[in-house]
Design a protein around this nucleic acid. Structure first.
Lengths: 235, 235
DNA sequence: GGGTGATAATTTGTATACATTTATGCATAC
DNA sequence: GTATGCATAAATGTATACAAATTATCACCC
């Protein structure tokens, strides 16, 4: 019976930030699945904080579309409808195109080196660590966006990419990373020669492929125990 | 000495929603100006709620970029830097273009009628109600986005439009609505004939004009009394 | 007059208490 | 066996209490 102990608390920041980050990672790595109940007391116990803190974190995740909240009934991991999913993908494509427009005109060799290193990391993780591979695939897009130098754009990309994890968890086959590393490589290659149109085309192709890979078998295993899952994320 | 009384509470929803909405409106109508301190107790008194509720509302406004928060030092109305301002405008243009792409292919006559009514409203307000005119000008863009049918896109447009209010409060002359109603009319006219390119061109022109109108005189009157301002927004 | 430091008053961060709402369990009835 | 109600437990919404941090006040000194 997992003991409700507080972990030694590694990274600081305000406490709610670390709860937020932990939950977010659990969602993105698909450890917490759409529909899972997020009881405030349970989360508070696992992270060693009060409900006040948990509530702040949940509200933030709700604002980002990662958790659903019903008045007096609490929070659950969001279950985006197909229509919402389409909206997310459309918006994501719009945003990521703009990222590439910006990047093509301002990307440095150092930036490209960083991107390349990330893809190499993805390749390694893809072999043996499923959850990390999922997360890294998303983080490639987030890295791209942050290199664009536009913080607002980067934040929105971050959000839609996270929500895509959720969507893929719902509509795609489980634990496939859904981002072909080869497609990421093509984007880097286009950026390396500052060919913005080629980069955008590669991104369009990539995102369309991800979208298509969705809409497959939905996996639903019930009776999931949030306690044991959260132990791994209450860092 | 303004009495700290709770108002009769009109619109429901959760309590923090109404605090959020009230503060947001005060910011958008430029009643609260960039840099103004947002003391939790003061806001709580004005809205008749506890700090818990205020805190939730402030956190949400912070996530949307409308208020700055420093650890242990509380919240102030955000003061976007010029660089942030450029990021917001760039992102806004990207998003609103997509809105028009969608609208040009799916807009109904009823939608156009609603848009026209809104612009008529703007015209009326422009004559005598300064703050309302500012708000209505922004709401035209929000209405456009919501008619696009893409909720995600609409939420992001909502956010960047709000932040533009803040930016114009900082960098433009005070209390000018900054949205020429004529330019809104041109966008409607283009949509009426389903000419997406003309609509996008009109929007580009409009947003460029708004951007240009910024970067003018910065107004800074200090010693503002939040209490008296909030009385009008604690509905 | 203007700087300096100790002290008091605010203000924030977090936990806890309590009321209200929702979910659960169990006995009874059909 | 399934359904209905009530009693109980659990979870949420909000306010409040208290510690820690910040800011303001003011006497003191140069």
């Amino acid at each position: 019976m997992n003991a409700p102990v507080r972990k030694p608390k590694s990274a600081a920041g305000t406490r709610s930030d670390s709860v937020y980050a932990g939950l977010r990672r659990a969602i993105i790595e698909q450890a917490l699945m759409p529909g899972d109940k997020l009881t405030e007391d349970v989360i508070g116990d696992r992270f060693g904080v009060s409900r006040t803190i948990v509530r702040t974190a949940l509200a933030r995740l709700h604002a980002e579309g990662l958790v659903d909240m019903q008045p007096n009934k609490g929070a659950t991991i969001a279950q985006p409808s197909l229509s919402e999913a389409q909206d997310v993908f459309e918006t994501r494509m719009c945003l990521e195109r703009q990222v590439l427009v910006r990047l093509a005109e301002k990307v440095t060799n150092a930036d490209i080196e960083r991107l390349q290193q990330h893809v190499d990391l993805e390749t390694k993780a893809n072999a043996h660590d499923g959850p990390a591979a999922i997360r890294l695939a998303g983080e490639f897009h987030i890295l791209l966006a942050s290199l664009s130098g536009n913080g607002v754009l980067a934040r929105y990309v971050d959000e839609v990419v996270s929500r895509c994890s959720l969507i893929l968890a719902l509509y795609s086959r489980p634990h496939s990373s859904d981002c072909s590393i080869n497609e990421h490589q093509q984007i880097i290659d286009a950026l390396r020669v500052r060919n913005s149109q080629a980069a955008i085309d590669a991104m369009d192709h990539h995102l369309k492929a991800v979208t298509d890979r969705a809409l497959l078998s939905s996996n639903s295993d019930k009776h999931r125990d949030i306690r044991s899952i959260l132990d791994r994320y209450a860092s």
